[in-house]
Design a protein around this nucleic acid. Sequence first.
DNA 1: GTGGTCTCCTA
DNA 2: GTAGGAGACCACA
Length: 970
Amino acid sequence: MKKGDHLFLVDGSGYIFRAYHALPPLTRKSDGLPVGAVAGFCNMLWKLLQNARDTDVGVTPTHFAVIFDHSSKTFRNDLYPEYKANRSEPPEDLVPQFGLIREATQAFDLPCIEMAGFEADDLIATYARLASEAGGETTIISSDKDLMQLVTDHVSMYDPMKDREIRIPEVIEKWGVPPEKMIDLQALTGDSVDNVPGVPGIGPKTAAQLLEEYGDLDTLLSRANEIKQNKRRENLIEFAEKARISRELVKLRIDVPVEHGIDTFELAPPDGPKLIGFLKAMEFSTLTRRVAEATGAEVAEIEAAHVEVEAGESAHGPDLDPSPAESDGDAATPAKLAAGIAEACAAQTFDHAGYECIRDLDTLKLWVEEACETGILAFDTETTSLDPMQAELCGFSLATKPGRAAYVPLNHKSGDGDLLGGGLIEDQIPQKDALEAIKAVMANPAVLKIGQNLKYDWLLMYRLGVEIVGVDDTMLMSYVLDAGTGSHGTVSHGMDALSERWLGHKPIPYKELTGTGRKQVTFDMVDLERATAYAAEDADITLRLWQVLKPRLAAEGLVSVYERLERPMIPVIGRMEHRGVAVDRQILSRLSGDFAQTAAGIEDEIYELAGERFTIGSPKQLGEILFGKMGLPGGSKTKTGQWSTSAQVLEDLAAAGHELPRKIVDWRQVTKLKSTYTDALPGYINPETKRVHTSYALASTTTGRLSSSEPNLQNIPIRTAEGRKIRTAFVAPEGTKLISADYSQIELRVLAHVADIPELKKAFADGLDIHAMTASEMFDVPVEGMPPEVRRRAKAINFGIIYGISAFGLANQLGIPREEASAYIKRYFERFPGIKDYMDSTKAQAREQGYVETVFGRRAHYPEIRSSNPQLRAFNERAAINAPIQGSAADIIRRAMARMEGALADAGLEDVQMLLQVHDELIFEAPESKVEKAIPVICEVMENAALPARALSVPLQVEARAASNWDEAH
DNA sequence: GTGGTCTCCTA
DNA sequence: GTAGGAGACCACA
């Protein structure tokens, strides 16, 4: 190395952590291996090296090395055993990336330097000194404050994330002291992340001011008795020794006996094929292309064979093996790491007394700062209601690492006092101030906010003007991992169940604080000590669950399911619920009146026919009248031995000429419409927004569908003319329209794709009537002039297939003998043998591995498919056949929803708002002037929703329409 | 008040 | 035959 040369030193270890938290998570498509930090690292190296070639841009390195920490134990631990002692394990989807980043460095043909007993920072300091002594310049690729002490006229730093150079003026600007005083400054402030003690009560501002006044640490400590502020003086005297130790801890060693001389770092031209081989193995397509372009086209041609070897080798390497099954030895596979983490977490204990109750703004700000440093923040709100659209905030809790959690009470009231329950407890941070203090960290995607059922907290905070960006949800992780496990899919993804299962810890029951029944109080009435124990524990548990579940995602290859299909739904569904839908109270009220009148008329006729008054709505009483008193031929019995009075039974009796059963059916229809819809819906109109805000459950179904409740807007009537009237009450406000866009036959299309049925695929490709085509194939009837009854039967069979057909079910549906239904199914399987194959292989898969998968890799578990109970087994087989079809369709519309807002915004349609989802349909509200432009955008997003992840072999078709109410729009 | 049963609304 | 949620009734506490 000589004068004019320029050494680049990349702080590899620092970069990994920073990239992991700052960059969007990324997984290798083929197996879900987490590679986000590796991707960032490769992109950065490539950019830096490009500058080396293009001499017009940026600084040109002549020497280049990447420096890593070797292990956690260094000479600093001998100085101060607690050094870095409170540092938690790295996130588990980061762990496999450590090895990969070293491999990446080697693929770039760059020196990969590390040394036992020393941190990367010490090596960097030593090399920077050596370079300066040789007359060269040094750029340290890092933004770590610990390295800023090294900055001189010839040593600068470069923050690759912010594309910013850090020289002497930048250090002074940021810290208030020049680089050479950084060591003293850090000695005073300490570092909570690395557990450097420092002097309590002294932050960067105070430290800079003191150093300005006294010059350096030794002078300051020796003259500490001159300090005016009592507390500060006492601390400086008491903790002088801690400050001196801290100085030794933060001072970097410039005399490490390095093994590799600086001259060995000389930059050579990149080995294109080697690098491309690695990048291809990582599946970084964009960068692979760039590198291929930059290194010449022919390199791209020879690369194929080379990559094959690299990919093959790496697939067996310990750091790359993502499969839990076939690992050998003590290799640190993601699965083993996940299991280890789970075991360690289950062994940890909980200390309620260790939780903090935050009652002043400064303390809250310290916690926020800490979260910014760790990049991780478990978050939970405590409120007065389960409805996030009506709830008032009582307080919120935070956790930054296991056992370190706090509750921030905001609106707690004292339990005693007058009838109103006393006033606000003193020393609570005003809500406005607290929200202001956390707003930035909540919006910062580099700090991961971890929640349990975070959609609730997201929506509540959104209502209060705080948007949360950068989220993880332990409930959704559990759902992705374990949907359907447990008998009848009874496994709960609720926090209490997860805590007991994974942490072996039973949380404080909510009811223990608030009581139950008439005496139940809202959370803001709970005293702060118990509220803190409960609320902080929730955040603590959430954080620990995250530590267990996140690595499992990688270990089980489910990262992309979580990232693509679950996590994006939190803000999307959150906004949909927040918008709600306009419902016309007058229309419902008028319909209620109409239904009441109709019902009253029918009731009179029923009493007349029955010869007495009775409770028509009681199946028990009704059964006694029909099958006892009137002696009608009873159909089936229910499982409790009662006569069934189901619509089917009553219809059959009506068809046989009996008058009363018909009246009962009619009465049931109108009373159902009245009680469930026209009477109930107005009660859900939010008094503030005047709209109805349903709640979508993201983790309630085994297949991946959403469910809707309070009210359920996914079962609004449509089949009968009377029922449809209810849809006219769902309206578009003045000046807007409702747009309804629904997938045509999406499940049959998915079936055609997954079972690979050429006839079905062709029919869809040609835009034919699929049920008529099926009928034509099965019954040898031409599509032209086909009797409706024939088509109806084919349609029932098609649906039956999706539901995991049985002769019994089909016979019931069509009202034909079981033998006939059986013959239909046989015929169907003969005409479409692929269907039978699909069903058999799906059942076999479910039996062997316990779950089936959607096209996008979502799993649905059916453990009971191995049951010896034939009924239970058959039920699970049908469900297992259905799940990939229903679930893939659910995945597709989720993908469409995740992309919709962005696509609309890109088209200048941000005021077109997605309101509702009904499994294969999306409902939007749009300004009238935007309708025409919005419809094609919506259809485009929905029809292409499977891409680019999967190319379906069948086109998806969407029909969309706009009108002023839901009935006309659909 | 809570939970089970029956019935019925949707995709 | 799949996947859901909800209201009414009724027996139990």
